[in-house]
Simulated scan of single mutants.
Amino acid sequence: MRFLFRLAGFLLLAAGFVSLIVDGARAIADDSLVFTSLGPVLAWLLPSFFPRIQLLAVENVGAYLWDPVLVTLFEAPAFAAAAGLGVLFLWIGRRPPEPIGFSTRY
């Protein structure tokens, strides 16, 4: 299980880096600083599920979660969201610390 979290973490971290490079190249070409938001990326990746996210959030949790939390999250830069999720997955998949006072030698 730890392997899957680490693999997903490295892939998300790489995706965040690639997204940052693409946004940087676009910023140099357009001569303005514009980042790709997470909302359009999710709409491109999940075309059938993304329109239902608002409905599910409002029905299950309430409208107070949709407007301040999820709308702000969908406006976040895609590279920051992917890199943050990748770091979280890498943290979850890390090795447990060695206990102090115990020898691992035979």
Rank of each mutant, 00 (worst) to 15 (best):
M1W: 08
M1C: 09
R2F: 01
L4M: 06
R6V: 10
R6E: 00
R6F: 00
R6W: 03
A8Y: 15
F10A: 15
L11A: 09
L11N: 02
L13V: 11
A14S: 07
A15M: 02
A15R: 03
G16N: 05
G16K: 00
D23S: 04
I28D: 15
I28A: 14
D31W: 06
D31G: 13
T36S: 07
S37G: 11
G39S: 12
L42F: 14
A43H: 07
W44N: 13
W44D: 14
L45A: 14
L45D: 01
F50A: 14
P51Q: 04
P51S: 05
R52M: 10
I53T: 09
I53P: 06
I53W: 15
Q54D: 12
Q54W: 10
L55N: 14
L56M: 11
A57T: 15
V58A: 04
E59L: 13
E59D: 05
E59V: 12
N60H: 03
V61N: 07
V61G: 12
G62E: 00
A63M: 14
A63R: 13
L65M: 05
L65D: 00
W66A: 01
D67T: 09
T72C: 01
L73E: 13
L73H: 11
F74P: 02
F74R: 03
P77E: 09
F79L: 10
A80R: 13
A81I: 15
A82D: 09
A83H: 06
L85R: 08
L85D: 06
G86F: 01
G86V: 01
V87D: 13
L88P: 06
F89Q: 04
I92E: 06
R95Y: 09
P97E: 04
S103C: 02
T104M: 06
T104V: 14
R105E: 04
Y106S: 15
Y106M: 15
